[in-house]
Amino acid sequence: MNEERKLMISVQDVTMTFRREEDRSGSLKETVTKLLSRKLKFSTFTALHDVSFDVYNGDVLGIIGRNGAGKSTILKIISGIMKPTKGNIIRNGNIVPMLELGSGFDFDLSGRENIFLNGAILGYEKPYLFSKYEEIVDFSELRDFIDVPLRNYSSGMIMRLAFSIAAVVEPEILIVDEILAVGDENFQKKSRARMMELMGGGTTVLFVSHDMNQIREMCNRVIWLDGGTIRMQGETKEVCDAYRI
């Protein structure tokens, strides 16, 4: 461990409470009639309760826990998609979330146009994207189809393009929700290797996975979330061994 490391993310006493109406109404009429008849009930659901941790430069932090433990919620809060009900997040550095591939694709546009659209959504700058364009096309192995509208792509081709765009990132903080291996066997190998390369390349990574082998292999620290609170955090081996039981 280095002595002086830059603090990249600081999560301070974050609590996230969702307010759920019993059955959420989507229409004006329903809400008004319910309000009038005082039937509008709220039940609260606490997804995260007073969670605090720090992430330093170069950390590969694994987040484990069962379904509904709050893993995805904490990732969404860190990347700024959600605002926590209480608590603070301090971020130093640009964050690239690799949550779901191809969210920003438009199926009427060609592969080329989608590279730029999706790249812009992921926060790349224009000159950077232009310089990386060839690399993206080569990686996706879709050069022959790059001017074809996306609606004519097969689902495997779409995933390959999406992965290739996301894979050229050089972020300071990378957020990964499960390792993404897409496409045919050959491409799966390639994409897995690229992910490992990205995560092992000295960037700060937040990594959510159910695959304990991957967690043991990649991470130097692990946080175990259970029912919205941190059950345990520390060295990978310690936490993973405890989680098994």
């Binding site: 700024g80 979330p97 969210s103």
Partner: peptide, 9 residues
């Protein structure tokens, strides 16, 4: 919606 719930912009 698919963008707003996945990427911060």
């Amino acid at each position: 919606a698919h963008l707003i719930t996945k990427v911060y912009v």
